[in-house]
Simulated scan of single mutants.
Amino acid sequence: MASHVITLNVEPRGKRIRKLPKELQVPANTSGQEIYASLAQATGYSIHRLRITKGVDKTVVPNSKDKTLEDVGLENNSLVHVKDLGPQAGWRTVYIIEYFGPLVIPALILYGLRPYIYFNFDKPIPEPSSLQALICSLLTVHFLKRELETIFVHRFSSATMPARNIFKNCAHYWFLAGLNIAYWVFRPDAAAASDEPNTILFYSGLALFAFGEIANLNAHLVLRGLRKPGSTERGIPRGFGFGLVTCPNYMFEVIAWIGIYLLSGLSWSVLLFLIVGTTQMAIWARGKERRYRKEFGDKYKAKKFTMLPPIV
């Protein structure tokens, strides 16, 4: 049976949107995805650039084929607001760009640019130590793993993010993880320049890095299995580490970077990146715990620690 037609009153939220219709007449069983597609076609904007909210309570109308207007409480003459989110970039694209910097910068500084960057040291500038070469290789492995996970493993709940995030994310990774770490750790007078590194720091750092990277990959594979291709729905994650904290992938990431910190001879530059990254991941982990509790209710076993017991 055909659904009755309703009229939605449409208003921009924030700045004016060119060609945005004032009214939209659609069947009541129209899906949220179809509403987004209709408004995207009318305005000439990407479907991912628009956010539609209900005028009565400001809740978002989901861009989903499984939710109809009736499901979200929209009726005849209901008001909806449409916000222009600005230029968008794909999550996968942003991640590939941001990881590319620290993937190539360490090798460039250690080998190709070494005589130009460390020009003020006595000549001839010594060759990189075996430990510096190892750290460079591990950094390459870490960020190459990130790139491959971005391309082949990760499934994103949103298709895009604001394009301006490219610059913010690149500033974090290209400068803090790339230039900052590589310049100081690969200096001819750095602790890692020694051919006789501290044995305890060396082997414990290597072990932590290897464990953290492998366990982090496993956690990402678990998370991938929770979401079907093309779907934004999530399941409750279970597996190694997930019974202990909300986001073991973040925990294992930190463990891997502690390994790099020990291998570097306790370089302050690695510690700085570790502190900044851990702080940001802790914020994300708390947010994810709140979302899990709200989304899954009693089905979800609430976690006392979200990332690093017994700290956070």
Rank of each mutant, 00 (worst) to 15 (best):
S3K: 14
V5A: 02
T7E: 03
L8F: 09
P12V: 04
K15N: 06
R16W: 08
I17D: 11
L20Y: 09
K22H: 09
E23P: 00
L24Y: 01
N29Y: 09
G32L: 11
Y36W: 10
A42R: 15
R49V: 11
L50W: 13
L50E: 08
V56A: 12
D57W: 07
D57P: 14
N63Q: 14
K65V: 15
E70L: 14
E70H: 05
D71A: 13
H81T: 08
G86M: 10
P87R: 06
G90T: 03
W91F: 12
W91E: 03
Y95T: 06
E98I: 07
F100I: 07
L103R: 11
L110D: 06
Y118Q: 08
F119C: 09
N120V: 08
E127M: 03
L131A: 09
S137D: 13
L148M: 14
V153H: 01
R155N: 08
F156R: 10
S158Y: 04
A159V: 06
T160S: 13
M161P: 07
M161S: 10
M161Q: 13
P162K: 05
N169F: 05
A177T: 11
N180I: 01
D189F: 04
A191Q: 06
E196C: 10
E196G: 03
L201I: 11
E213F: 00
N216K: 04
A219W: 00
V222A: 05
L223A: 05
R224C: 02
L226Q: 10
G235T: 00
G241T: 02
V245N: 10
C247T: 04
Y250F: 14
F252W: 13
V254T: 12
Y261T: 03
L263K: 05
L263V: 00
S264D: 04
S267F: 02
L274Y: 02
A282L: 04
A285Y: 11
G287D: 04
E295M: 09
G297W: 08
K304V: 14
L308V: 11
P310E: 09
V312E: 00
